[in-house]
Design a protein around this nucleic acid. Sequence first.
RNA 1: GGGCGCUUAGCUCAGCGGGAGAGCGCUGCCUUCACACGGCAGAGGUCACUGGUUCGAUCCCAGUAGCGCCCACCA
Length: 866
Amino acid sequence: MNPTYQPAEVESRWYPVWEESGSFRPEVNPDGEPYSIVIPPPNVTGVLHMGHALDHAIQDAIIRRKRMQGYAALWLPGTDHAGIATQNVVERELRKEGLSRQDIGREAFIEKVWAWKAVSGDTIASQMRKLGDSTDWTRERFTFDDGLSAAVRKVFVTLYDEGLIYRANRIINWCPRCHTALSEIEVEHENDPGELTYIKYPFVDGSGFITVATTRPETMLGDTAIAVHPDDERYQDAIGKSVILPLMEREIPVVGDEGVEHEFGTGAVKVTPAHDLLDFEIGRRHDLDPIVVIDTEARITVDGGEFAGMDRFEAREAVRSRLREIDAIEAIEEHPHSVGHCSRCHTVVEPLLSLQWFVEVQPLVGPAIDAIRSGRTRFIPKRWEKNYFHWMENLQDWCVSRQLWWGHRIPAWYCDACGETIVSMEDPTECSCGEGELRRDEDVLDTWFSSALWPFTTLGWPNETADLAKFYPTSTLVTGFDIIFFWVARMMKMGLHFTDDAPFTDIVIHGMVRDTATGRKMSKSAGNALDPLELIDEYGADSVRLALIQAAAPGHDVPLQTEWVDAARRFGNKLWNATRFAVEFMDVSRVPVDGGYPENPGPEDAWILSRLGEVAAEMDRLLDDYRLADAYSLLYNFAWSEVFDWYLEMAKTIARDDDRVDTMRETLGIVVRDVLKLFHPAIPFVTEELWSHMTDGGELLVSAPWPKVPAYESPANVDSLVDLVTEVRRFRSQHQIARKTDIAVTIVSSNDPLPVWWLDQLGALANCSPANGQRPDSTAGHTRLSSCGVEAYIALVGLIDVEAERPRIEKVIADLEAAIDRSRAKLDNPNFKGRAPAEVVSQEEQRLGEVEAELVKQQRQLQELG
RNA sequence: GGGCGCUUAGCUCAGCGGGAGAGCGCUGCCUUCACACGGCAGAGGUCACUGGUUCGAUCCCAGUAGCGCCCACCA
């Protein structure tokens, strides 16, 4: 037997067995209640990173337990076509060949993306298998497969017919590098040093000038007005006058608008309706025609006069230096502010006036808020609900059109004769006007549009499939807080609108995996990412999973370092060795897959069984609350320190006792079996392997029933013996008494005959059986140990330096006295007895009694030292 | 400018109204025949600070300080 567990070989062996046996299909529990989770679909061209590993470890632990509990458990896998991200990847590949997507054309490009998907699209699926994800691959979906695409079209057409999708010319966020519009949540605001430039605009009538402050001087080329607050006393005379726009020599009005703040800058603002959202609205209120001076390449347009063709940042400097030449700059001061960047490529986004498709979100918001508020769907932890509400209540309409090629093409056609817009399920062939050619909209939909439909489209919607009826609404969604807005909120809105049900009952939010060294989120760009695949190769998937699960407190970021993965691996090794030892040396085998709890256990057996029952019950409570970290830390400690360090050691000795060997073996088998079961959702591979060695064969652990442990009562005697043994060990350790036989322990009395294990651990002399044990003639020179009906003496003379023991006992006595004082003060307080629950009072009294008894014992020991 | 979270053992974090916990690290002893990736025994904390509520506060409330995150059209 190899003393070290080798995960790689074992892990590669089990996944195919599980998958081929159909164990991941809900059909394994045909009569079970349905329980379903849809996976947050990873990018189809992506690779597994730590965030996935965490997300998947949690989901897998949840679904595996539900499966074992007998639910018809479905974890539905799939991938996202990930519009911009995927297109960027393929364009990068093309560029290596010196080509752009425009060079090869739309059709060829899309073929290229599909080809890319065919090669790299399975990567994530095979990596999920390595991780052990028990997803039902027969139900795998892709946001761009035929079924989902048809559903996307149906949703678009329906919303259009309901008036909830419209096309309009608005200020949108434009990424000049990706060449597409973005929604506002795809814009990341970052701090920028920035400068505020104060520019003087002279009045037409020659009565001086008005000064405005701007962080973007280049946009002045498109100014169509100056705005001040209508109540601003400084500018009462100015409203209604006109100024000359410097450099452009255009006459523009000064208007009063309530959107302007008194305090900021000079209280007067330049208005550039084509390049700023606030300015756009001011422009609309005052009937100002926008002038576009920055194009989709972020260059100055022909309307920008002498600056035409310049890049926007180049133009910023050029405009400033020209203004300086004509003495139109009053001041330039530092002004830190935040600037929007494209969340994909980090380019500074440009607010542009553009014709785009929008979803009107307000009518969808109400039901999505109600579902949470009423408790039909809940966030875990609950505090995320506040973020969700706040975000929902402040939504702008969702810009859903993207100027990309990879995505669901918008099903809208325009007639070049009459200008009619046709949005329909079927591709139209001609316009109702009878003339003119129909031209299809070039744009595709935001990736998140199809993701928003994921919980029901993956189950067959709009068809009324059996899966949709059975598994929708889904039970639980597990995801990171970073996509609550992108994804969760939109699924809630779309789900409620199209199915009348919220798509899930529980929304479990976890944090980001953080690197403990830098304290930062793990990411490739930060350069601090641990690669889960490398960790799996080195430590095994079980170890990575257990480390993540144990670190994942609900709703908090998850710190991780390789040392923890190594600790988890060492646990796997321990589990491996302990179980193999039980099987090979203790003859624990052919354990029943369920039940089989001993009816007449010995005292030690009853003790471990009672602990098993407590741990299993507590785990169920914790797991039902999604507190996986607590549940698995509890089990980890129980398994290691109680089952392996205590019970297994007891069992070795007890096994020599013919009368007890059978129940011991039975108990050991059952306890280890249930530990494997309880651990399986977290560490499926090693538990399945060990299970195969100890059960009577045939049935896989993956679909074995979850433990239901009957209640056992732990004999009080065992607990006190544990204390006694610990005390003897401490004594020996402290006085460096290496061999047990170097110490003479006399058992004077015991309520029950002591099993040989205890005598051995205590180092008691074989001839000092408890029944006829004699108290030493003189207790002086002995130390007396007693605990709950057991009394024992250790002979000290000639064994230790008596004086070395004295200070320790004195410190213990001092601590006990302090505890007694505290306890007495509490009990003497009439308010305590009057107002605290009776239970607490009696508990306190009992504690005082125990501490006092301990004090007496310690004092006697001190005396007996002589 | 709003909102949220965090501050507990050397490190990373649990706990959250009634006796301060885990992992890793540290100290001592043990190569004992499942595991030295192990065993046994230990050391180590005024639970950020200040008030309040309570019979009782690490836990609840208010405030202070430090750290982190999210949202935001003050140009």
